[in-house]
């Protein structure tokens, strides 16, 4: 009992996820700043921002559904934190079971749907636009992402993340066999996290802040936390699926290598957001269905043929 509480609350549960989320956010912001030749924030900035939001007044426009507006961020937070418990950290996974990959993919979609609903219920014109856009974007990136993520699963012959990650000790990191799949997964992750260049649902110059335009105070703080933890889970997931070295390197090095890879992933995400301009929603749909899906299918075909 005490053990599961520890797993749930400390590691790899809430506390660990939060700390990682803050660190990743800070690192991302610092990197962005350095790309732009700025100094960048100090290490406690994400925490300070969170505290600031907590101390702010919480307003919603009249006509918004107060209950739903409070429930949606909490539901998303619950979903991403649950997902976080199932992702192995450097091979350590107390709650693993066969099929948890599917559960995680499902749980990571919850915030997107909540985001869409948040746009609809918060009675703002930009929120509605942003919500609609987030759904459109969801359909564009989710399918290639799913196909890409099933690549490692098919290759390993199991749907448990821990198994997939440990089997790479024998077969070698999957990123070597499925580079296209990995790139597609990164693109899908960017879309899922609504990061630039796929920040179409919250493009500032177009729809102000998208679904979250009308949110403020504690609710916005929770939303931001959700986004952070979603990033953490997504990055850990990709590292596990595509480049798990925990069985290959010496056990002492497993943890540093794991985190190094995660940090590298943030670097890749940051660089992508600095280098590409935001796409238009029709361009994204075109990219998603005409380029990403065929590529993902091709990759899957290759994986299946390799297995035969």
């Amino acid at each position: 009992m005490a053990e599961s509480l520890f797993y749930l609350l400390i590691f790899p549960g809430i506390t660990f996820q939060l700390v990682c989320g803050w660190f990743f956010e800070w690192f991302d912001r610092k990197l962005q700043a350095r790309f732009q030749r700025r100094v960048g924030p100090r290490w406690f900035q994400p925490l300070a921002d969170l505290l600031k939001l907590f101390s702010k007044e919480d307003l919603l426009p009249s006509g918004a559904n107060e209950f739903a507006a409070a429930a949606l961020p909490l539901i998303s937070l619950g979903a991403v934190l649950t997902a976080g418990v199932y992702v192995p950290i450097a091979g350590f996974s107390p709650a693993s079971f066969e099929g948890d990959l599917i559960v995680i993919i499902f749980l990571l979609s919850v915030p997107t749907l909540a985001y869409y609903l948040a746009g609809i219920i918060s009675a703002g014109i930009y929120s509605v636009l942003g919500g609609g856009r987030s759904l459109l974007q969801f359909f564009s990136y989710e399918v290639p992402l799913l196909i890409a993520l099933s690549g490692p699963a098919v290759m390993a012959g199991t749907w448990s993340i821990r198994e997939i990650s440990s089997i790479q000790a024998e077969m070698g990191p999957f990123v070597l066999f499925q580079p296209i799949g990995f790139i597609l997964a990164v693109v899908g992750l960017i879309g899922k996290l609504k990061r630039s260049p796929l920040d179409i649902p919250k493009a500032k110059s177009e729809v102000v802040a998208g679904s979250l335009t009308e949110f403020g105070g504690v609710k916005l703080a929770i939303w931001n936390t959700v986004m952070n933890i979603q990033a953490v889970v997504g990055i850990f997931l990709l590292v596990n699926l595509y480049s798990s070295w925990s069985g290959i390197v010496a056990p002492v090095l497993a943890v540093p290598v794991f985190f190094l890879e995660s940090v590298l992933m943030i670097f890749v995400l940051s660089a992508a957001s600095a280098v590409f301009a935001r796409l238009r929603i029709d361009q994204l749909a075109g990219l998603g269905w005409k380029v990403l899906v065929p590529l993902a299918l091709l990759q899957l075909l290759v994986v299946i043929l390799m297995g035969v």
Binding site: F35, Q36, S196, P197, A274, F276, A277
Partner: peptide, 10 residues
Amino acid sequence: HIGLEMVFMH
């Protein structure tokens, strides 16, 4: 405006 914040800063 089109999301190239880095070019903007440079």
